[in-house]
């Protein structure tokens, strides 16, 4: 904008804005200032790369180089120790034909399909409940947010104690109902569901905070007008508040979806991916391939498959947002 405005200053026949109509020395002062600015801009341009260098070096070393390296590694048989061998797309072909990797992808999708809606419903529900009318809402907000800021490892260890045979849930069921609770983490039918429940507890606080802030920003005039027109609370929420916070819902959905595809700590600590492969997720598979089985090529290839899955789903979400996200509210 500043560059577009500057030619105007250089026009000697430009009408003087001063009401007295007299030519004033201020114009030449402005010209000098403009020339000085332009010289400053030149100098700034010269300095620019130097200032960008630290960040540029960081980006190159810690982002671009690892991305390029992982793609290169994924095209090789790359044991952690020993000789590397060029495979081309061999690792990718192996992964696509590997029934274990297929199961791992399905497990990850199952986690995503269970976790994302549960997370959104719980966080949106609690955010809707925490209206300014609720006494001590700030305290509730903090309490609900605590699991999100506690280290996931600590959370997982505590939940493992709740879930294990003889743990809190089993103990309570024995003392009240006289029956044993299922072996939540040791039974392949329960293990994934148990991990999802723990993850929802751990993760809903962040989205709740986003939704709560977005709901607070909905103008009261809109909701009051609707109420005057006889709209019931559910209609106000569904027809006014929900569309108004749709950009926040879109953001939260997208971020939750991406992070849920990357789930690792919960199965890694609670089940090691078992029983069998029932809780093995893609990132856990990548970790095991890389650091337990020492096959860095296979691990990198799986990481690229995960990247493509996430990229595809994010793209679909961006395309679909036109139908339900209202930025013009």
């Amino acid at each position: 904008m500043a560059i577009q405005a500057s030619p105007g200053l250089k026009r000697s026949d430009a009408p003087d804005p001063e009401p007295d109509g007299q030519k004033r020395p201020a114009v030449s002062v402005r010209r000098r200032a403009a020339r000085k600015d332009s010289g400053g801009l030149g100098r700034q341009t010269a300095w620019g790369p130097f200032f960008a260098l630290p960040h540029g070096v960081g980006l190159a070393l810690f982002t671009l180089l690892p991305i390029g390296a992982s793609l290169w590694i994924s095209l090789h048989n790359w044991p952690m120790m020993g000789q590397q061998k060029w495979l081309g797309l061999g690792n990718y072909q192996h992964l696509l034909a590997d029934p274990i990797f297929g199961q791992v992808v399905l497990n990850t999708l199952l986690f995503v399909v269970l976790y994302v809606p549960m997370n959104l419903v719980v966080s949106l529900g609690l955010a809707a409940w925490l209206t300014p009318k609720i006494k001590g809402r700030h305290i509730f907000r903090i309490i609900f947010f605590i699991p999100a800021i506690t280290p996931v490892v600590a959370n997982v260890v505590v939940w493992r104690m709740l879930y294990q045979p003889g743990g809190l849930i089993d103990g309570l069921m024995q003392s009240t109902l006289g029956i044993h609770a299922p072996n939540f983490l040791g039974d392949e039918h329960w293990a994934m569901f148990s991990i999802v429940v723990m993850s929802v507890w751990q993760g809903f606080g962040y989205n709740m905070l986003i939704f709560s802030s977005a709901l607070d920003a909905v103008p009261e005039s809109l909701t009051e007008a609707a109420e005057l027109d006889g709209a019931r609370p559910w209609t106000v929420f569904y027809r006014i508040k929900l569309p108004m916070i749709s950009p926040s819902i879109f953001f939260a959905t997208m971020m939750t979806l991406i992070t849920s595809f990357q789930v690792f700590a919960q199965p890694f600590i609670m089940t090691k991916g078992g029983p069998g492969t029932s809780t093995s997720t893609i990132v856990l598979f990548i970790y095991n391939q890389g650091f337990q089985f020492h096959q860095l090529g296979m691990a990198s290839a799986a990481a690229w498959v995960l990247f493509v899955i996430i990229l595809g789903i994010t793209a679909v979400q961006f395309l679909g947002q036109k139908k339900w996200v209202h930025y013009d509210a």
Partner: peptide
């Protein structure tokens, strides 16, 4: 040995908890 150890951690629980036979687990 690391790979075997990881697979023991992952699979033996099925045999211990009676969801699969020991032979079935070792086959996996």
């Amino acid at each position: 040995s690391d790979q075997l150890g990881q697979l023991f951690n992952q699979y033996l629980v099925k045999s211990f908890n009676g969801q699969d036979s020991a032979a079935g687990v070792m086959k996996d």
